[in-house]
């Protein structure tokens, strides 16, 4: 009895220790992947420059259209020009964080699943969560978007008469985190299809994120309630930038406005975990065809 109690105590006290250990491991792995990314840049500077340059050009091109529209019409709907710049900066920052932390097809998870590359993650002696949180960390070659986004945010914040307090900055960071989580969850949700249809759904995550990328820059004010509801939940375009920026800029003055994105992101993440786990269970039975003689990439 005493032994059992002692065991229970050890297990209970081990749980926080495990969590702390996992956190340290994630930090150590980020440091290692950062070093590898730096080595990649140092190995072929021309190639690395092209990667960074292409990310920057793409990022600028994606927001330029909306910037030019805002310039032409002196703002869009209830958004002034400078508020549009803030929203574009926010959206680009979110994309930048996704590129920086979830490169190497972690964001495009359907490719990894469809191509059988998930096996490479599963055979590692660590939880899959740790692998997925760290393997795609490319702070040097993948941060061009992030730098562009932060630049736009600073530009907009300098031009906006915002009461920037600690609370506001915390809300900004929470919302950015929630927006990143929304996009990641959406990509993983669609990407889970690849567990059941590896060949057909191999590119589904890229289609899903492309849709968000194309629409994230548009202000969604004035859409019909049904369409807007869909764009806030089923296809969370509004979560990428529009909804959080409305709250942060005071366009939506409701006291709960700043918490809509974190709340929806949480629900979306929970639902995604449920579906992804179902997919994993299916994967346990079927496995990957990649290395079989008759595999679709064989």
């Amino acid at each position: 009895m005493a032994d059992n109690l002692a065991d229970t105590t050890i297990i209970e006290s081990a749980a926080p220790a495990r969590r702390t250990g996992m956190l340290w491991r994630i930090l150590r792995l980020w440091r290692m992947y950062a070093a590898l990314d730096l080595a990649f840049i140092a190995a072929d500077l021309k190639l690395a420059c092209i990667y960074v340059f292409s990310d920057a050009i793409t990022s600028i091109a994606l927001v330029t259209g909306m910037l030019l529209l805002a310039e032409r019409f002196a703002g869009i709907g209830p958004w002034s020009q400078i508020q549009i710049i803030f929203m574009l900066g926010y959206a680009t920052t979110v994309s930048g964080l996704l590129n920086t932390f979830f490169g190497y097809n972690v964001l495009m998870i359907s490719r990894r699943i469809g191509r059988g590359q998930l096996d490479h993650t599963l055979i590692q002696p660590q939880p899959m969560l740790v692998s997925l949180l760290t393997e795609g960390f490319v702070p040097f070659s993948g941060s061009a978007n992030l730098l562009c986004g932060i630049g736009l945010l600073i530009w907009a914040m300098a031009g906006l008469a915002l009461p920037i307090t600690t609370g506001w900055i915390v809300l900004l960071l929470i919302n950015i985190f929630a927006s990143v989580a929304s996009v990641l969850a959406f990509s993983f949700l669609w990407g889970s299809l690849a567990f059941w249809a590896p060949r057909a759904a191999e590119e589904i995550s890229s289609s899903a994120t492309q849709l968000l990328d194309q629409l994230k820059s548009f202000p969604l004010d004035g859409l019909s309630p049904v369409l807007l509801g869909g764009l806030m939940t089923v296809v969370p375009v509004g979560m990428v930038a529009w909804s959080p920026c409305r709250a942060l800029l005071g366009i939506d003055a409701a006291p709960y406005a700043g918490w809509i994105t974190p709340f929806v992101a949480l629900l979306l993440a929970l639902f995604t975990i449920l579906i992804f786990r179902k997919g994993m269970h299916n994967y346990e039975r079927t496995g990957s065809q990649r290395y079989s003689n008759l595999g679709h990439r064989g």
Partner: peptide, 30 residues
């Protein structure tokens, strides 16, 4: 090869629906 192409088409339909709605907002009263 890609029986899930229907999902791609649904996404395209959604995109055009959103774009149409956005133009109605931007160009309203102009």
């Amino acid at each position: 090869d890609s029986p899930l192409f229907v999902i791609d088409y649904l996404m395209r339909l959604l995109r055009v629906t959103v774009l149409l709605a956005i133009w109605r907002i931007i160009l309203a009263d102009k």
